[in-house]
Design a protein around this nucleic acid. Structure first.
Length: 570
RNA sequence: CGGGGCGUAGCGCAGCUUGGUAGCGCGCCUGCUUUGGGAGCAGGAUGUCGGAGGUUCGAAUCCUCUCGCCCCGACCA
């Protein structure tokens, strides 16, 4: 391909709307253009990258035995009403009506459609298991689209749905998907971690998210330095710290005028926030509960939801807390609680000796309280977010670190949630109806493009991993308009490289070398070859890897050998 | 949904406080020069100043409404 034949509208300046580096570089490099909030056009160069991701995903899905199909973008409301999600899904589901005023939605996900298909078409256990996938545009009307491709409203996703007679079969496919994802993201050249994830309200046994590690990631993930334990922060656990051994002191009530924050309490009392037990009022399915955490810990609402077996859980508003307890904010505490409600304590709050907490009266806190002696020990649960440095729950030696991740994949055991609601049954060996069990597996194809850039860039532009690059090799013909020799040599090299199986972009534009180099660096092709009168005179090619800082002068054989080696190493 | 900010040439921005009929840089077009890291000189084109209404002799500028976009928040007593 010649650069004069492909539209690559690069930008010298960064558009104001772009916050993230991937967003900036994809706009500047002419890969994408914004149409409206959360909606992007894939420009010729960007589309090539997208197709590269699709290609790898498709190959690995096919290799794992999944079958590709393609389902409609517009889905009838009836299916969603049947699954209960027409009401549950909320405003993210973009609803529309046709000319007959029938309700439809734009598909944000396809459990309903695939379930409908399978219940119509699959009738016997002999036809299971099956795993269907598609690579399709999805639409979710996000509260706040942002970060370019990272959180758009319209996006491209590979989603797969598997159907099984029993859990063992589901487990086998789940494992095979897990491995396919490992292969996929490895081939795509991404630095990623598979992490244990929370299953949310759906329940189900297992769920893993695949995160590309990047500082700009929207998710926090905890991983062990020593073993392979990794989990989404929502789910991450840590090994409980050993109980404190301090000698108990005499409990005392002290005046703390106007002190209503943990930090203020610690400062006023001259103690560490780790010596404070804080009380957080939450509303679980409409009922108030007191949660206790160590002062320096953060409440994890997902864990609390599990511990309380609550479908809906939120922190009580300050007004609710004050009116329920009659105690000013910051002075609520578990000793002689102001409310006859359940109390649940994080296990770490229960290991503090000589702790301080609110005394349930304005301007008063307790100090040197001790469990059992001064107040009953409430039931323990894991309610806190893990922190960097916590002990790993899986191995003895490791400690946890917290990193940021971009979720690019998710594998999930759905169980019978949809098959029950939608009545997917097949005849089993005994001729009886059996409800199938399901798994689902997603990859954010368009998000992978952005995530790859977040991980691979420098101050001059993108550094595409080999598998994603829109072209493998870029040829810069210097002053080709003035030098027929350069033009001919560059074209010849281009043709031979293409014949050898490489995708090649030949920059034949009538531009100054500086502009050509800047463009090449910005769009991030892995290999660059410069053709000029200077190097032709030496009968060599001037080669430079995008990541390298030095040129190499290679004759054609050396060049071909080098490319072959680099290319297949990824 | 709440809070904040911004809409002026393709892009990045100034002008608005103190109303007088629109400017800078990049990009684009033409010519000449230049040619190994986003060139120089000369000339040129491009704006319903987001939209509607109002105030005024006169509105990019003041007022009202509206549309769009960006950022933050929507959990820590």
């Amino acid at each position: 391909m010649r650069a004069s034949q492909i539209f690559i509208p690069t930008l010298k300046e960064t558009p104001a709307e772009a916050e993230l580096i991937s967003h900036q570089l994809l706009l500047r490099g002419g890969f994408i253009r914004r149409l409206a909030s959360g909606l992007y056009t894939w420009m010729p160069l960007g589309l090539r990258v997208l197709r590269q991701v699709e290609r790898v995903v498709r190959e690995e899905m096919n290799r794992s035995g999944a079958q590709e199909l393609l389902m409609p973008v517009v889905q009838p409301a009836e299916l969603w009403q049947e699954s209960g999600r027409w009401e549950e899904y909320g405003p993210e589901l973009l609803r529309l009506q046709d000319r007959h005023h029938r309700d439809f939605c734009l598909g944000p996900t396809y459990e309903e459609v695939i379930s409908d298909l399978v219940r119509r078409e699959i009738h016997s256990y002999r036809q299971l298991p099956v795993n269907f996938y598609q690579i399709q545009t999805k639409f979710r009307d996000e509260i706040r689209p942002r970060f370019g491709l990272m959180r758009g409203r319209e996006f491209i996703m590979k989603d797969a749905y598997s159907f099984h007679m029993d859990h063992a079969s589901l487990e086998a496919t789940y494992q095979s998907m897990y491995e396919a994802y490992q292969r996929t993201f490895t081939r795509l050249g991404l630095n990623f971690r598979a992490v244990e994830a929370d299953n949310g309200v759906i329940g189900g046994k297992r769920s893993h998210e695949f995160h590309v590690l990047a500082d700009s990631g929207e998710d926090a993930i905890a991983s062990c330095h020593h073993c392979d334990y990794a989990a989404n922060l929502e789910k991450a656990r840590s090994r409980p710290a050993p109980a404190e051994t301090e000698t108990p002191r005499a409990a005392e009530r002290v005046r703390t005028p106007g002190i209503h924050t943990v930090a203020g309490q610690a400062e006023h009392l001259g103690i560490s926030t780790a010596k404070i037990v804080k009380t957080i009022l939450v509303v679980a399915d409409g009922k108030t509960v007191m949660l206790l955490l160590r002062g320096d810990d953060e409440l994890n609402l997902v864990k609390a939801g599990h511990a309380l077996d609550a479908r809906d859980l939120r922190i009580a508003s300050p007004e609710e807390a004050v009116s329920a307890t009659g105690v000013p904010l910051g002075f609520i505490g578990p000793k002689e609680p102001p409310l006859p409600v359940p109390i649940l304590a994080d296990q770490r709050a229960l290991s503090v000796v000589n702790f301080s907490t609110g005394a349930n009266a304005e301007d008063l806190h307790w100090i040197h309280l001790n469990w059992d002696r001064d107040l009953p020990r409430p039931p323990a649960a894991d309610l806190r977010n893990v922190r960097a440095g916590d002990a790993c729950p899986h191995c003895a030696e490791g400690t946890l670190g917290i990193r940021r991740g971009i979720e690019v994949g998710h594998v999930f055991q759905l169980g019978e949630r949809y098959s029950k609601r939608m009545g997917i049954t097949v005849l089993d060996e005994t001729g009886r109806d059996a409800t199938v069990t399901m798994g689902c597996y997603g990859i954010g194809v368009s998000r992978v493009v952005a995530a790859a850039v977040e991980q691979h860039f420098d101050d001059r532009g993108i550094l595409w991993p080999m598998a994603l690059a829109p072209f493998a090799v870029g040829i810069v013909a210097i002053n080709a308009r003035k030098s027929p020799e350069v033009a001919a040599a560059a074209q010849g090299l281009h043709d031979r490289l293409e014949a050898a199986g490489y995708s090649v972009l030949l920059d034949d534009r009538e531009e100054r070398p500086g502009v050509q180099f800047a463009t090449m660096d910005l769009i991030g092709l892995p290999h660059r070859i410069v053709v000029s009168d200077k190097v032709l005179a030496q009968d060599v090619w001037e080669y430079r890897a995008r990541r390298a800082t030095e040129n190499m002068l290679l004759d054609e054989t050396q060049l071909m050998d080098h490319l072959r080696k680099e290319h297949f190493r990824g």
